[in-house]
Design a protein around this nucleic acid. Structure first.
Length: 740
DNA sequence: CTTTCGCGAATTTTT
DNA sequence: TTCGCGAAAG
């Protein structure tokens, strides 16, 4: 072994060495929290390079840009001097990789070469239209529910044409109809949604032997991070990329699978050994991150999952502090407590950037932000996408999208009259009618506005000006004129579109903020560096815009966590995956919030909530602080809350309960829902025997609706009702007919 | 055509 | 509480 090779294995555990040096054949690395996953992946890449594998044969896929960036940086750090080694190394997000392949193989993948990527908002607009087109009532068919159904289809690679229709029930039939309408809109607009990025690539790789072969030839070594969060489409992509050498290495942890709702299929990781026979499995069992009580607390919690596979994780960092559980009067009190906690930690020497507050829903950040501002604690909210969701930013980006892709009608409709330029609904309806009649796209129809008989002269003129403006941009951007650079072009569009002017005239506080945001967008364009092109050729502005828009569409919240900045990080539990901090506070540790109310009725979903909680807890290195409020105001309504059931599932001796006192004397104690199952037989001192029909965790405590033999059904607070569970064998319901 | 107002519905998590 | 939509006024 050479010296540099030796260095790559320095300080690794046996299991880690095994994972790093197993280069050939399928490999599954089960990496619990803090087990040095990134270290293993990066050293493995460096190891492969040290074996003389050309860098361009390596492909590493992650879920977030941040993870990809970190991986790149750490590989760089491992490579001595010669940065030439890593040129051609492909470390990308799954979606980014797919977007790039689609630009490279538009014909093979059957996508337009200048496609738009529709984000959640655009998609909503397209869905609404699809529901209308399908002739269904938008009251019963919400874009959210329909969108979810369609996503599921796409994740399973079921296309609109393939959607099962015959004989199906009304629901399935309708979804199929909306799906086809929706897809027709996307096709007509030359647009792809997030699912399409994966689906189009998966289908291409599955069906096009030549392309698959070419990619297999190029990428000899495949690595996939967070494998537990891959969906069906991603599995197809991964397995198609794997050539005959079967060099695929996946890294993940089933206990950290938190994207089931987005189609992630946990069986991908559970069945890996089955799907890739003779796969080697390496389990990383040592936790390098957290101290003992934190490991014990989180391990105790996750063990409650029926789907959990027993394993041991040990730490050699000592017991450390117990997990503090704090109660607060309300969310403001809770926030103030956290301010105090963080200030204390800071005084004791912890830098701000080593602290984080995690919460289940983004809505919780408001109150926290307020308190942090008042308490003069520097903070950042990790919400990468928020900036790009602002109306003025979306407007500006829609103009740019329209320049790149003239067929993008969602973008077109958004900006046609923003700012107002005299093209109202009536005129647009007329244009649309004309477009349909003449089988033109909406954009083309606008180009021929003066041919549309129904339009007023005024409207024709306004439409003509709009069309000229966009055409002029398009011509300049595509003219190969390199006189203009990207930020210049962006600022020109903001100016000439009238966006800037419309905000400048109104001088409200709000408008000034919007103007600043637009400036920031130009700055972002200036700071953006285009990805390297295959042949290093000069890109036209148009290509740069397209590429920039793509990168914007694919940013995630987690990407915004900047390790350099000296601020406390506030973020959702989902965004926290893969990160770690010295001090972690989890706010809103309440029933209905974590686990979330929408998951209480379903065991599978509740298990995912538990995993989410596990992910949060395991982000902490040495201090973990869990807090709940006794009442909380949601959507303007104040409600009493009760502590999360998860508190009852964490081993008591790993915790320091400071929330015992009950400031309202409600006497509410969390009730383990485990014993109170629907169908259980119970006895009540006055009502006698009955059967549980329904169990609902409520702010005032868990309630059970019981069908009593002699008194009919009653809903009772479990904690106060003196109900006792009766062994059914003891009192069989012999010959007694219980009404349902 | 544009603006404003009032009502109703809704938010879990995100590439 | 906030957002989005539709109706009515300007």
């Amino acid at each position: 072994m050479s010296e540099s090779e030796h260095e790559l294995l320095n300080g690794l555990t046996d299991a880690q060495v095994d994972a790093v040096t197993t280069t050939d054949g399928p490999l599954l690395v089960l990496a619990g929290p803090g087990s040095g996953k990134t270290t293993v992946v990066t050293r493995r890449i460096a190891w492969l390079l040290a074996q003389g594998i050309p860098s361009w044969q390596l492909l590493a896929l992650t879920f977030t840009n941040k993870a990809a960036g970190e991986m790149r940086d750490r590989v760089d750090a491992l490579l001595p001097g010669a940065s030439g080694d890593r040129r051609g190394l492909t470390i990308m997000t799954f979606h980014g990789f797919c977007a790039r392949l689609l630009r490279q193989y538009p014909d093979e993948a059957r996508v337009p070469s200048n496609y738009s990527i529709y984000d959640t908002t655009d998609r909503r607009a397209a869905l609404k239209q699809a529901i209308r087109n399908a002739g269904l009532d938008s009251g019963n068919w919400t874009p959210a529910s329909v969108g979810e159904a369609i996503s599921q289809c796409k994740n399973r690679l079921t296309t609109a044409e393939q959607h099962d229709d015959g004989g199906g029930d009304f629901y399935t039939r309708s979804i199929g109809r909306i799906y086809r309408e929706y897809q027709a809109i996307l096709d007509r607009n030359g647009a792809l949604d997030f699912n399409d990025l994966l689906l189009k690539v998966a289908v291409m790789l599955r069906d096009d032997d030549e392309t698959r072969q070419a990619l297999q030839d190029r990428f000899r070594y495949l690595m996939i991070d967070e494998y537990q969060d891959t969906n069906q489409a991603q599995f197809v992509i991964a397995s198609s990329l794997v050539g005959p050498q079967r060099n695929i290495c996946v890294v993940g942890d089933p206990d950290q699978s938190i994207y089931g709702w987005r189609g992630a299929d946990i069986s991908n990781i559970l069945d890996f050994e089955h799907q890739f026979s003779s796969a080697k499995v390496v389990s990383l069992g040592r936790n390098f991150r957290s101290t003992g009580h934190i490991v014990e607390a989180s391990a105790g919690l996750i063990r409650r999952n029926a789907s959990h596979r027993e394993r041991t994780l040990h730490t050699e960092l000592g017991d450390g502090d117990r997990v503090v559980v704090a109660g607060a009067a309300d969310e403001h009190d809770e926030a103030r407590q956290l301010v105090d906690l963080f200030r204390d930690q800071f005084m004791a020497g912890t830098p701000w950037r080593e602290m984080a507050v995690l919460y289940r829903i983004n809505a919780l950040s408001r109150v926290l932000e307020q308190a942090f501002r008042d308490g003069q604690i520097p903070y950042v909210v990790a919400r990468g996408t928020a900036f790009y969701e602002r109306a003025e930013i979306k407007d500006a980006l829609s103009y740019l999208r329209l320049v790149v892709n003239p067929r993008d009608e969602v973008a077109l409709r958004r900006v046609i009259n923003t700012p107002p330029r005299g093209i109202g609904k009536t005129s647009m309806d007329r244009v649309e009618k004309y477009a349909i009649l003449n089988r033109l796209g909406l954009g083309e129809a606008i180009g021929n506005a003066d041919q549309v008989p129904a339009l007023t002269a005024r409207a024709k003129a306004a439409l003509g000006r709009f069309d000229e403006m966009v055409e002029a941009w398009r011509a300049d951007a595509d003219g190969g004129s390199l006189l203009l650079d990207l930020p210049d072009f962006v600022s020109r569009v903001i100016r000439e579109s009238g966006l800037e002017k419309s905000l400048r005239t109104g001088a409200s506080e709000e408008d000034i903020a919007r103007l600043e945001n637009l400036d920031e967008l130009v700055t972002a364009a200036a700071e953006w560096t285009p990805p390297p092109t295959p042949d290093d050729d000069e890109q036209t502005i148009l290509q740069q815009v397209a590429s920039w828009l793509e990168s914007i569409a694919l940013v995630s919240d987690a990407d915004m966590v900047d390790p350099e900045n000296g601020s406390v990080t506030l973020m959702s539990l989902h965004a926290a995956k893969g990160l770690e901090f010295d001090v972690v506070a989890m706010a809103g540790f309440e029933q209905g919030l974590l686990p979330h109310a929408r998951s209480l009725e379903d065991d599978i979903e509740r298990e995912e909530e538990r995993r989410l909680c596990y992910v949060g807890m395991t982000r902490a290195r040495r201090t973990l602080h869990l807090s709940h409020a006794h009442r909380r105001t949601v959507r303007g309504i104040t409600e009493r809350t009760m502590p999360s059931q998860f508190l009852g599932e964490i081993p008591a001796d790993a915790m320091d309960r400071q929330d015992d006192d009950d400031p309202w004397g409600t006497g509410i104690t969390p009730v383990s829902t485990a014993d109170w199952q629907v169908g259980a037989t119970v006895r009540h001192p006055t009502f006698g025997l009955g059967m549980i029909r329904r169990v609902v965790p409520r702010p005032r405590g868990t309630t059970a609706t019981v069908e009593f033999l002699e008194y009919g059904h009653r809903t009772l607070l479990v904690a106060q009702s003196n109900l006792e569970i009766v062994d059914p064998d003891e009192h069989p319901w012999e010959g007694i007919d219980i009404p349902i």
